[in-house]
Structure formats: C-alpha cells, structure tokens
Nucleic acid binder design. Structure first.
Ligand SMILES: [Zn+2]
Length: 266
DNA sequence: CCATTTGTTTTTAC
DNA sequence: TGTAAAAACAAATG
C-alpha cells in the first residue's frame, strides 16, 4: 500500500531515469485509469521534474502539460532499460523512451492518472507534508488538536496532514504510545510533540529502507522495500508487543483496521 | 458470493 | 454554516 515513503521511493528512482528524455510513444492499455485527458497528449514531450504532494506524484513536462498520478492500493511505476526483463501482467500504461520504458502497473486498478493542461490538480484539499522542514511540532499540534475525531482518523485525513496512511499511522501511534481511538482534542501538548517526532522518524526511516512491501507493493525496479521488517504493530494482531509483551489487538477505527497495544497506548 | 483491502468523494446527521 | 461520522466507490483476490 503506497503511502508517503513508498511514493517518495518511487519518485526518487524515476527521477534518476526518465528526466529530460523524449517520450517516443505512449500506450494506454486500460483507459479506465486515465481520469482526465489522454496519455497520447504526452508523445514528443519530456518530463522535466517529478514532485510528490502527499501521496500524489506530479510529473511536469517541457510544456504546460502535467501528469498527476495516485497509486491507491496497488499502483506502482516501474522503469526498465530496453535489455531488462520486465513484468508483463497488470500493466495499465506504458511510456516508451529511446533506451527504456516507464510502466504503470496496478493489480486492482484503483489508482488514477490525470493529464492536465490547465495546471489544476486532481485533489480537492491536501494538508501539509509531515516532512516539510518548516513544519514545527507546535504547528503540527495546532492542526490536529482541535479535532474531536479519534487521532488515527485525523492522521489519515489527507486534508490535515498529507501522506500518512494506515501502516504509518499505526506505527507512529505505537511509538508515541497513544491509543488510536483517543479523541485528538484530548491529547496533551507533550504527547503531540512526541507523536510529531516519532512520525517523522518513522517516515524518514521507511524512505531510507525504500518503503514497506506489504502484499502487492514493489519498487520501481520490481524489487521489494525493506521497512516491513521494522514494523512493530501493523498486521501483527495476536503477536506480542515489543515493548510490554502483551498481545497486539486489531480493532476498527473510522472504518479502518487499527493495530495497537492496549497496554502501552493510552 | 462474501469479506477484505485502500484513499477520496459524496452523502447524511448533528 | 460547519464539522463529523458514515456510506459509497473504484476492482480484484482468496
Ligand atoms: Zn505494549
């Protein structure tokens, strides 16, 4: 499930391979995933930069055209040199360069691509990036602490903080020892300070490890990320808590599964 | 066929 | 009017 670290890992790898190369041809194998415009509009252009906004990827080109992408559950971008073997199944779109090929692969096909020529992004509201160097813990606390919803629901709200998904919300709350069901307005400043620190630490560590491979996620070269080996609670219902050895529980918070230690997280 | 998985948008409720 | 909770939605997998 691509969240901020997985999307960032993809962004970094693609940036090393496709910038400035003319797009010779484009094939749309699953038109349904192109939510706006046509990929064929990109033929002849080259990508000048790749940015990330929350979990969206933003491909700017040497024209006004911008390609936006959201990977949802199982989407990923793959890049292969001409000589390399590559996966053949579940490919939704391909961009051909002189020396290689960019692929969008999506097993469950819930992701989306938007071709925009007016500069209007596909998202309605996106909050701040938790890794924004200018963001302070007090600002972070200010954004969350007036909400009455469970803290986990607020962390997942992309209009508040952009990029955190289920895995890293669970892991950050465990590290900060906060119960995912606790209302956001009942959390102390001290706890918010710890949550902000732990969230950033986990996200940076996950980027360092090239993300988490859980079920379908693969890196841009088809290999797995490494952060799943560092997960403490996500997907570990029934396992013993690494902090207190009590069992990890799985509950539903805001229509999402939440994994936590009832003994450590208050 | 159903449960499960996800983030976002839409709808409903307060 | 605004916020919050719930439902809808996309589609494939086991
Ligand atoms: Zn514990």
């Amino acid at each position: 499930m691509p969240e901020l670290p997985e999307v960032e890992s993809i962004r970094r790898r693609l940036s090393r391979h496709i910038l400035g190369k003319p797009i010779l041809s484009v094939e749309t194998e699953l038109p349904r995933i192109v939510r706006q415009g046509e990929l064929s509009q990109m033929v002849g252009l080259s990508i000048t930069s790749i940015d990330r906004q929350g979990k969206y990827l933003v491909f700017k080109t040497n024209s006004l055209l911008i390609l936006y992408a959201h990977l949802r559950m199982t989407g990923t971008f793959l890049y292969f040199d001409n000589a390399e073997d590559r996966v053949k199944d579940h490919i939704c779109a391909r961009w051909e360069f002189a020396d290689g090929e960019l692929l969008y692969r999506d097993v469950r096909t819930l992701g989306g691509l938007w071709v925009s020529v007016d500069g209007v992004p596909p998202w309605k509201a996106l909050g701040l990036d938790p890794l924004d160097k200018k963001l302070t813990w007090k600002e972070f606390a200010g954004l969350l602490s007036h909400k009455k919803s469970p803290i986990k629901a607020v962390l997942l709200d992309q209009s508040v903080i952009a990029g955190v998904g289920n895995i890293y919300a669970c892991e950050a709350l465990f590290a900060a020892q906060i119960n995912p069901r606790r209302p956001a307005d009942e959390i102390s400043e001290k706890s918010y300070r710890k949550l902000f620190k732990e969230l950033k630490c986990i996200l940076w560590s996950a980027i360092e490890a090239s993300g988490t491979t859980f079920r379908d996620f693969r890196l841009s070269d088809g290999r797995e990320g490494g952060f799943q080996n560092f997960l403490k609670v996500y997907g570990k219902a029934g396992a013993t808590c690494p902090r207190c050895a009590q069992p990890i529980e799985k509950v539903v918070v805001a229509q999402r599964s939440a994994y936590f230690c009832p003994n450590c997280q208050k």
